[in-house]
Design a protein around this nucleic acid. Structure first.
Length: 504
DNA sequence: GTAGGGTTAG
């Protein structure tokens, strides 16, 4: 019974049954724990899982590799990669599932570097051969880092050991190439797949959309329908995202209607979020506000933040302030909201208000999350932060930055300082030569790669307006294609223009 | 005869 529930869509009753069993004085055996932990993992029931962990230890089943592996999986899927790793370190017997569980724990919890390190340890030091599961975690880690060369190597390896036909690994490859901005390689993987699932289609649709190929994403969705496949709610998130980033307002609402009526999918807050963005981006800010007020779900912070973003782009000061007040109630210390509000005031040239926002931030101890940019070079991922001086090539990098600035000024570039808050740390450091991390990363890449090679950067925050203008000019002045993945989407810079059409 | 994987609005 417990097994049945644990493996079903609603594993909740499994926990109740266990409690009942416990109450009747029936002891669990080694067959029960894995299913219980599976249920806890699915439900993210941390407390219950930790309790089961305690029982496992008390009954002396801790050293059984099967049981321990489910514990690793439980902690990993509840966002507690560290707990999983601690257990892993103490294990005397490990098998492939053990390695996969702990690697995946790091990979899905935003610690891709640790996932890669463990993968190397597993395959090069311990000589354990990876399987499809391992490759999915590895590719996910590469995708997060934007490590294209490393991902390609994994792809080659998969072909060599016969894992290239694995459906899940194939899907992870599509996602990898899309998240590295190499959408044509994603297409290639998709086209060569022996078996595809709706996830394969969805991954490519989402990948096309975030890379700025909205029309192609919608075309692919059409192909999916012609094949008679059933799109999922995530497919529709991709479709609606494509519409909002291409300004296709009517089409977006058309798909939303079809999602509900033809496919019977109940829209979630993510779908409403896309539509708020769709209206807001298109300048229909009042309509977006009305849409939020009329939606049947409770709007969350992301919904209001989307509207605040639209107010900032289109200069709706009064509404923006009202939305900001709501966000203060929902998430008072979200640094991004302070930045948005400040940009809103800056766009209206209200400098006193900009200063006020800054002072509040300092007073409340709200720190802007530090931006960093990643560049991959010869299978190594280099990280740069604003004003970075830690890299061994610092001297060369800053010389290059000077050269870049000289060239850009000839092209008519004037540094844009209206995003005052974006430079808050810069001012604190009182360092006039403190460049944003993406500029440093680009200088580093220009030094270390052959002319005309594309430059790829992954940034954890959104690229600021000043850097966006500068990178457009760099792509022209240095004749380089520059691909920047920021927090929200891709920017493909080439010959002085960007694929986002300055709209992001 | 009990364990693990892919896509999600700002």
């Amino acid at each position: 019974m417990i097994r049945g529930y644990a493996e079903s869509e609603n594993p909740f009753p499994a926990l109740g049954l266990y409690a009942e069993m416990h109450g009747l004085g029936i002891e669990s055996d080694t067959h029960t724990y894995p299913f219980l932990l599976k249920a806890c993992a699915k439900l993210m029931a941390v407390k219950e899982g930790e309790m089961v962990h305690g029982v496992v230890v008390r009954n002396g089943y801790e050293e059984l590799v099967f049981v321990k592996n489910t514990l690793l999986h439980f902690y990993s899927s509840c966002g507690l990669a560290e707990n999983a790793y601690k257990l892993f370190e103490l294990m005397c017997e490990r098998n492939l599932v053990t390695w996969n569980s702990v690697i995946n724990g790091f990979s899905i919890n935003g610690r891709p570097n640790e996932a890669l390190t463990l993968f190397r340890e597993m395959s090069f030091e311990e000589g354990v051969k990876p399987d499809g599961f391992t490759m999915v975690s590895l590719l996910t880690a590469c995708a997060e880092l934007g490590a294209l060369a490393l991902g390609r190597r994994a792809h080659v390896y998969m072909a060599k050991v016969g894992l290239h036909d694995n459906l899940h690994a194939g899907n992870a490859l599509i996602d990898l190439y899309a998240k590295c901005g190499s959408i044509w390689e994603a297409y290639k993987v998709f086209n060569e797949m022996v078996v595809r699932s709706v996830v394969s289609w969805t991954s490519l649709i989402v990948g096309l959309a975030v890379n700025g190929f909205g029309k192609e994403a919608l075309k692919l969705f059409g192909d999916l329908e012609r094949e008679g496949l059933l799109p999922s709610e995530i497919t529709f998130v991709g479709v609606l995202y494509a519409c909002s980033h291409c300004g296709m307002v009517d089409e977006g609402f058309g798909y939303f209607k079809r999602m509900r009526e033809e496919y019977g999918i109940t829209p979630k807050v993510e779908h409403y979020g896309c539509l708020v963005d769709l209206l807001g981006r298109a300048g229909l800010v009042q309509e977006a506000h009305k849409f939020i007020q009329d939606m049947p779900l409770q709007p969350n912070a992301v919904i209001w933040r989307t509207l605040l973003g639209a107010c900032t782009i289109h200069g709706h000061l009064t509404l923006g302030e009202a939305v900001r007040a709501r966000l203060l109630q929902l998430e008072p210390k979200h640094s991004g909201d302070f930045v948005l509000l400040s940009n809103l005031y800056a766009s209206e040239r209200r400098w006193t208000d900009v200063q006020k926002v800054r002072r509040t931030m300092l007073k409340e101890g709200v720190k802007k999350s530090p931006g960093h940019s990643l560049v991959e070079l010869q299978n190594c991922v280099h990280e740069f932060v604003m004003g970075d001086k830690a890299h061994p090539q610092t001297e060369q990098i800053y010389k290059m930055l000077e050269e870049i600035m000289k060239k850009l000024k000839l092209e008519g570039y004037v540094p844009r300082t209206s995003n005052v808050l974006a430079d808050i740390e810069e001012e604190e450091k009182e360092n006039t030569l403190s460049y944003h991390s993406e500029k440093i990363a680009i200088a580093f890449a220009l030094i270390n790669t052959a002319p005309k090679t594309p430059v790829r950067i992954v940034k954890n925050l959104r690229v600021c307006q000043d850097c966006h203008i500068a990178i457009k000019l760099i792509s022209k002045a240095f004749d380089r294609e520059i691909v920047v993945r920021d927090r929200s989407r891709f920017h493909h810079f080439k010959g002085g223009t960007c694929s986002c059409n300055d709209y992001w």
